[in-house]
């Protein structure tokens, strides 16, 4: 469970204050596949970064798996990112100097798994995204869609509870985007909670829950919808 209560985030750039999130409230339940849409600059990435512990928030309360994130120090946050969260980026963010095997290995090493466990997890997850045969390839030798699949394998390798994706299909053509989306659906069905920011209305609809962010808040539509469900 991921619970955000009245989270706000203020960026201070010189004299200018930007309220990226204002009283942001959201509960993500185990097994959810949530798509987050909203206009550019509305705070989607900020929300996802805070949810993924990449950024701190200014006010509010944030519980992840029952743990108060605000009380963690930098090392604690690193550990929690590694154990509970898998992150997928719009630009894939694979390490260009490392082959697929070593790329998937990165978070496993930070976790401190031994070589045998790591090998098992790397092979299993590359298998899961259909790229086990290309373990020794460099990212640059793959298509965008394949690179994003490697990134998904890397995010899943540590068996996180939450998969956070910021426009994972933003750099892909529609066919590849479709493939990645299907993969995410499959992963969600296998039990991983997913929060995905997207611009693509068609993909957004395929999620089990859709929320809209506007001006740093979860928009009225979503709140109404939540009430309707209740």
């Amino acid at each position: 469970m991921l619970i955000m209560k009245d989270i706000s985030k203020i960026f201070q750039t010189g004299d200018i204050q930007t309220h990226a999130l204002r009283d942001f409230n959201l509960t993500v339940n185990e097994g959810d596949f949530i798509s987050v849409t909203g206009p550019s600059g509305s705070g989607k990435t900020t929300f996802l970064n805070i949810a993924g512990l990449l950024e701190t928030y200014t006010h509010g309360e944030f519980l992840l798996d029952g743990e108060d994130v605000g009380k963690l120090n930098d090392n604690g946050r690193s550990r929690m990112r590694n154990e509970k969260i898998g992150f997928i980026f719009q630009g894939f963010n694979l390490i260009p100097d490392l082959n697929l095997f070593d790329n998937v290995d990165v978070p496993l090493r930070y976790r401190g798994f031994n070589a045998k466990q790591r090998k098992l997890r790397i092979e299993e997850n590359l298998e899961r995204v259909g790229l086990a045969s290309r373990m020794k390839h460099l990212p640059s030798q793959l298509s965008g869609g394949q690179q994003q699949r490697v990134a998904i394998a890397r995010a899943l390798a540590t068996s996180p509870r939450f998969l956070l994706a910021d426009e994972p299909t933003g750099n892909l053509d529609s066919e590849m985007a479709n493939g990645v989306m299907s993969l995410l659906e499959e992963i969600n069905q296998q039990g991983t909670t997913i929060v995905m920011v997207t611009h693509d209305a068609l993909l957004a609809e395929r999620a089990t829950r859709t929320i809209q962010v506007k001006d740093g808040r979860v928009s009225e539509l979503e709140i109404l919808a939540q009430q309707a469900i209740a």
Partner: peptide, 16 residues
């Protein structure tokens, strides 16, 4: 820079 940020996002501590 981006690679280092990514490593941090994947769970690297400052010391790592």
């Amino acid at each position: 820079t981006k690679q280092i940020g990514t490593r941090r996002a994947l769970g690297a501590t400052k010391w790592q």
